[in-house]
Design a protein around this nucleic acid. Structure first.
Lengths: 119, 119
DNA sequence: TAGAGTGTTCGATGGAGGTCGACCATATGA
DNA sequence: TCATATGGTCGACCTCCATCGAACACTCTA
């Protein structure tokens, strides 16, 4: 019998993993960081795939990317730091959401260029 | 007496230097190149300075940049290849013009973000 | 509690590109 | 023809970052 066992779904309070998740609102992101984030082709692929489906339906591992697991994780961290995506843990998986409106308000047109890219 | 001496102002036909000038219309520029061009802070400084004054009034050497002559020349070549500027020789000097409308038509909003940057 | 699945961290590596000094090319004017 | 000024080219260097394998951390289920 453990003390203070809340629930296995972690409804209340962040899990140990989620606590390490540092998000950044687009309004706190320098243009330099936004451009750097968007200048990488792998990251643009992530953004486009993410835009093609509803929020919170894509875990990090479900993206079709030509890189290793470690590199993939790195790219998601960059996108998070650039205010381009939001992440939420659900069990062992980490689901993603494109911060479309927020990002577009700070950097109007930039995300649209990425999503319109035929690649 | 040289044969076929046109004029010293090179009104007709390009000068030897100008002939080596390879321009690229924004419509032929991949998004990757546009983003790479704009992701460099020195190049953004050039674009902002250029936007602050009328076309064809700024020679390459008149920009206040924290880099050497060689590096400066490199940056102008990148901007030219990205369809962001147009260059024209006038005597020994090379004058610049921001391709604002053309670029904005292909990459709407991108240049505006750069010019709005407070830096 | 053991195992499987998902994702991160760490250290190392390789390549791309920004940077420079030196030299070269062109244009103007004395 | 020479001197000066502007700008480009070349080769070398160096830093940053994308990349990887391996090990680790967390979550769920048996």
């Amino acid at each position: 019998m453990s003390v203070r066992r809340e629930s296995n779904t972690e409804v209340r309070g962040a899990s140990a993993r989620a606590r390490g998740l540092t998000h950044r609102h687009p309004s706190e992101v320098p243009l330099q960081d936004a451009l750097d984030a968007v200048a990488d082709p792998v990251r643009r692929t992530i953004l486009r795939e993410l835009a093609g489906q509803p929020d919170w339906t894509r875990a990090c591992g479900t993206f079709d990317l030509p890189v290793s697991k470690a590199t993939r994780s790195h790219h998601f961290a960059v996108l998070r730091a650039a205010g381009l995506i939001e992440q939420r843990d659900e069990g062992p998986r980490r689901f993603n959401r494109l911060r479309r409106a927020e990002f577009d308000q700070v950097f109007p047109g930039l995300l649209a260029l990425v999503l319109a890219e035929r690649a």
